[in-house]
Design a protein around this nucleic acid. Structure first.
Lengths: 222, 222, 222, 222
DNA sequence: ATGTAAGCGAGACGGTACGTCTGGTCTTATA
DNA sequence: TATAAGACCAGACGTACCGTCTCGCTTACAT
């Protein structure tokens, strides 16, 4: 801060000097490079910081600066491995999703759908995965790459287990195979709409109704 | 996000006319105050600038600064009437929505749903309303007030005509009245999911299938 | 606030409505026009507000907006009579200066100067006049009209009683008439420098020394 | 404020050279960071821009925004190193003051004072230093930190060479040592008053008279 | 064994946008 | 015709992030 400044005179706010001196010992261990390859500790610290940040303040207040600060990482280190904020959100999302729900396999489509929806809402409530996905959707409304990622990768992944259930149901004769694709879209539309409007509490009645309508057909009114 | 048709331009009955007339002789008319009350010309110019900006660059690049610049307005004037970016987006959205689709009234639910969906997709493609709604959803992922507005005001408004169709269908005996609410939610989930992933092209097959499944029930596989 | 807005929808921050309704009765009497001539009540209220504001927060925080707010006056009313902030400051300054010090007339220049300086410092301390003059000097550093006003009107007025004392002293033979002008300038330089650096406490020793040096000459060191 | 001579331009040994060289091929070199430490080129460009701005439009029109624009710098870069406008003005002032007047050493106080005053007025006329100091004084009338800086740092520095002359004179027996402090204050009061009222033209008669009165005493009128 | 290549924390950099404040002008409605 | 009111454009304020850059360091790997 002092180099090359022959004329730098007393600043208006130079009274801070004293307290800066007490900072002699460094509380942060400064996680250095481990050679010409990615440092797993750095990666873990960054994703953990991002996860915690999302958990604490949600997508608002989620910034690369804040993640770097909290992780004790340099911003270029983040940008090296996650070229955009979206990528970092995806990393958090996928990491959380790893703790996955065992497939229900109740033997009937309606029960499978309901169980899956309830498990998903629960995971979105209790981990930052929900905030992460919401953030990705938000980014996708303004950035092309995020949009591609969302509907080329994330939403298909979200629909995959649903499609699997529907495939099973089709094999059991519960569902016309020609309808599985649209049914999967309707289910994920339901899930997404609830997530984005913050309505992911354990609303059993609604989940039950959705599952019944889509799984067993409605039949005409009596 | 792909439709580069520059959307329908200023309507014949638009309030912007006043401003555009003054533009004829002076490049920057410096639209002054008209007394201690809101200046409709300023309001029109701001909403028009916001609309055009959305149409040209989408939600990315939509900033209050840019709107003020383009409208020749002071930022405080914008903040006075639309306290947040979301409010301005809503203004654009509702303005565009005014040119509304006549209700289909085909006499059968399936046709009504399909016609409505196609009309809505068309409107989203051809006016900035789609971009506006996408922006509002994005904002709602990080800002509580926007979230409240979204699911307390905007989504209900979106679902209202659908609910009306379902009510009619229920009166005709096509649908169990107990299901109308969830059916409306499923339809709007479908619409919203398509909007947010940029899939609002005129996909007649998908719209047809969605309408059939939700309107007539699926019936089990043969 | 409602006119011409067919599309103005629910604002994000529209919860204020309720409390605005309680504002039915007006606490402020709304001092109206008294016809086609200047309303003394308005003038008094404005100058009083300016004076009080200066007294409470000093020149920082002194703005036309704040004065208008506090006086319950419209900004144009202020600008009509005081075309710039400087003019308003001058009004405050002159009004305060009205409660003026009786001329000392001790019969000797040194005592006159000291008495005058002490009286002036006291007035600057105890009324907003000091803040007003400081503000005028500040404005004069960036605005030509204020500068003209300052050294064409205010500083001469400040020097006038001093020049009078020096004239008397010259008549008494205490001072060379050719020196009175510069002596007056040196005295007012002393006063101004003290005011602008906030050193207008009752420093009798310094005032005494200044008076002695300028009034009786120094004489060489013993 | 009247001198429209464009003041001495960039010195041969100025640090700006580096930046000006890159300007040869690219109209906007986008002077990037040079690592986790202050970039001297950026500093030089900012101070130079501030200096030029002061020289061209004076303290009015001197804004951080304008400096940033002209320097091709980001506003945060300026605020990082000069937390307030005052700090930047001080930087300009001290930079200019570096081109210092050789101490006169005429052997007699009166000549020393006159030479010093004339040199100072000349520097204030021909460089932006005068505008910078005027700006600092203006700021000090509304901001406490600027006030502290002014009379704790800047005015003492201004008075230092004068005090030195007076000390020499006292050693030579020309002046009573007990008077040196007040004499220095009277001289700097004279200088400051002239600066703040824009009267820094080469008024030899006035400078002569001031020097004579303060240096040799006046003696009574004949 | 050593040179080189890459990762690392750090933080400065030019920008853009944020939301607020003030300046000075303008117009209306009221008296 | 003066007044209170308050909207209007303009633009500066100081702050937060963005994504890029360079530094000085550390370590592993290829020579």
């Amino acid at each position: 801060m002092e180099q090359n400044e022959p004329f730098r005179s007393a600043n208006v706010s130079d009274t801070v000097q004293i307290e800066e001196m007490t900072l002699s010992e460094d509380p942060r261990p400064r996680r250095a490079s481990i050679g010409a390859r990615r440092n797993p500790a750095a990666e873990a610290a960054i994703v953990a910081a991002a996860r915690d940040l999302l958990g604490e303040v949600g997508f608002a207040g989620f910034s690369i600066d804040a993640v770097a600060r909290r992780a004790g990482a340099g911003k270029p280190t983040i940008y090296r491995w996650w070229p955009s904020r979206t990528d970092l959100l995806v990393a958090v999302y996928e990491r959380e999703r790893a703790a996955r729900l065992a497939e229900p396999e109740t033997g009937a489509l309606k029960g499978d759908l309901a169980a899956h929806a309830r498990a998903l809402f629960s995971a979105w409530r209790e981990t930052p995965a929900g905030h992460a996905l919401r953030g990705i959707v938000a980014e996708a409304q303004g950035a092309e790459p995020a949009l591609v990622l969302l509907w080329g990768h994330l939403l298909p992944a979200l629909a995959r287990p649903i499609r699997a259930m529907l495939g099973d149901a089709a094999r059991r004769g519960e569902v016309d195979p020609a309808d599985t694709e649209m049914l999967a879209e309707l289910v994920s539309g339901f899930l997404l709409r609830r997530l984005l409007t913050g309505q992911i509490d354990d609303d059993r009645a609604a989940i039950e109704r959705m599952s019944r309508i889509l799984a067993t057909g409605r039949g005409r009114a009596k």
